[in-house]
């Protein structure tokens, strides 16, 4: 084998080796990303509109959402997950604001940050009526804070 052939083959081999290692690493990384998430569904039925009282919001603990029902404006659903570091916020009826226990963020009635380190307003989720007359919340669909569902 002459010098030129040796270098050519050598380079080709090296490139192949790097490619092989690269592909393997990529595959390992992809392996670690779950293809299926065994997590609670993002879109869920929460019950009949009549189940929810007017006035103070209903807190659904498992879903981490607040369901607001207003006599003339209708339904709205707010996320209870603080946008700072993910603690569950509480709603104080007395001052009509959301309070986060972790680092003291306070959100106004429309979810906007009023105080504390939270970088963004609380999310509001789309709420629709299913064919069988139930409320459905879709946590993948974030809507403006003035979104309302009239029933």
């Amino acid at each position: 084998m002459n010098r030129r052939a040796f270098l050519n083959w050598g380079t080709a081999g090296l490139v192949a080796l790097c490619a092989g290692v690269g592909v393997s690493l990529g595959a390992v990384l992809r392996f670690l990303v779950p293809s299926v998430f065994y997590e609670p569904p993002q879109s869920l039925k929460i019950g009949n509109p009549a189940d929810f009282p007017f006035g103070a919001p209903t807190f659904l603990a498992d879903e981490k959402i607040f369901v607001f029902r207003d006599r003339d404006k209708g339904f709205a659903v707010a996320s209870a997950v603080c946008t700072h570091l993910g603690c569950t916020v509480g709603y104080l009826q007395s001052d009509q604001r959301f309070h986060c226990p972790c680092h003291g963020s306070v959100f106004g009635a429309n979810g906007a940050v009023q105080h504390g380190p939270a970088p963004r307003a609380l999310n509001w989720f789309e709420v629709t009526l299913t064919r069988d007359g139930q409320l459905r919340v879709d946590k993948d669909k974030v809507v403006p804070s003035n979104y309302r569902l009239m029933v």
Partner: peptide, 24 residues
């Protein structure tokens, strides 16, 4: 569903959490 109040990271990360409480 229920965050203890206050919720704290392990103590050796509390310095970090303190900083994070000002700007994440």
């Amino acid at each position: 569903a229920k965050t203890p109040n206050p919720a704290k990271a392990p103590w050796y990360f509390l310095g970090l959490q303190e900083l994070v409480s000002h700007s994440a």
